[in-house]
Amino acid sequence: MSPTGQLSGLPILAIDSHVRYIQSLDTKKDELDYWLTEHLRLNGVYWGLTALHLLGRPDALPRQETIDFVLSCQHDNGGFGAAPGHDAHMLSTVSAVQILAMVDGFDDLETKGKGKQQVGTYIANLQNRDTGTFSGDEWGEEDTRFLYGALNALSLLGLLSLADVDKAVSYVVSCTNHDGGYGVRPGAESHSGQIFTCVAALAIAQRLDLVDKEKLGRWLSERQVPCGGLNGRPEKKEDVCYSWWVLSSLKIIDLVHWIDREALIRFILSCQDEESGGISDRPNDRVDVWHTCFGVAGLSLLGYPNMETVDPVYCMPKPVIERILG
């Protein structure tokens, strides 16, 4: 590839447009969707900020405002809601920790927030000590998404010891299917999103020896469809967000070369809105920050030029993970 990012006629990643698009997200208060998606606000900041870091513009959002907003979502129990006034939940708490990690804001969490220990306790208390899995909040929904999120955030906080990691690992193993994949719960069908959460959780627990890499790799590699995109399950349509779930899982088990890299790059780039910025699920669909994040992260993982390297386990910039985990 040339330094400009062109690979035998590939369209160019419209970095400036994407940066502007992400920066504009908080100015759309005259759109109903802005208000209807408030329950995802903190997740949205994580998606946007991750994309900006990977696009090489980590400072494109105001740092102190970001920290202040994150801390304004925290509850006394240490957990974070999606926005001020929203109940604490695992998903927004994990996003809060990831954002603070990216902006190097853990000190603010100690001085202005409730502190790391309290956040860690909130997360660890959501573990089902009998089975090892985690629920999303006090109302009890259990899902391997929450288990992964818990291990992700606890490890970033340096508080993994608060959870029963061995039990969590056994639970993930009990979600393994005969096709090598993993589901939401034991017995549930393999799904690329859940495969990412399970494999990445095992990576954090340093138990990748428990993965049947060959079998899983086969199933994952079959997610690539003729247009180059990846689907989440057999016989489903391709979707840019699976550029992340499938690809990162393949990366973690060292089998990215089992799919066609260039075809996937082409597919992701065909879903970007070059002028207004943002990436959508499929070409010419409406863009959103979620697909923008996972499309950009996919490109970074595929080695698209001039991008920050993404960590496949955390879906965060690699230098940030190295700074925190050493």
Partner: peptide, 19 residues
């Protein structure tokens, strides 16, 4: 925030739509 299968809008909203 994560839209699936929704076509990209062809242009900006009219003032009437915005109201």
């Amino acid at each position: 925030m994560a839209s699936h299968g929704v076509a990209r809008a062809s242009g900006p909203r009219t003032e009437e739509q915005r109201e």
